[in-house]
């Protein structure tokens, strides 16, 4: 059985980031220094609801989008 990697290589908003394994989406949000209420997160093009962020594990190679509101029309 292959061992889980000690760290996770993630693509967050198009940038490579590493996070110690294991980690959840909530861990990532905290690591980025963001307020959970101010962001919405997509993991591999699937929305991760706020209530589920702390129970959604991250996997090596995950692509994440962390978004918020900006001015727009």
């Amino acid at each position: 059985m292959p061992r889980a990697p000690a760290s996770l290589r993630l693509l967050v908003n198009g940038e490579v980031r590493t996070l110690p394994a294991p980690a959840t989406v909530a861990d990532l949000v905290r690591e980025l220094g963001l307020q959970p209420a101010q962001v919405a997160v997509e993991r591999n093009q699937q929305l991760v609801r706020r209530a589920e962020q702390s129970t959604t594990p991250l996997a090596d190679g995950d692509r994440l989008e962390v978004v918020t509101f900006f001015g727009g029309g």
Binding site: N13, V39, F69, F70, G72, G73
Partner: peptide
Amino acid sequence: VTVAVRRMQLGAPQGKTLL
């Protein structure tokens, strides 16, 4: 009011947000 959904600028200091 309409608002746009865009990527958070990571690493930037978190000041006031639009909201």
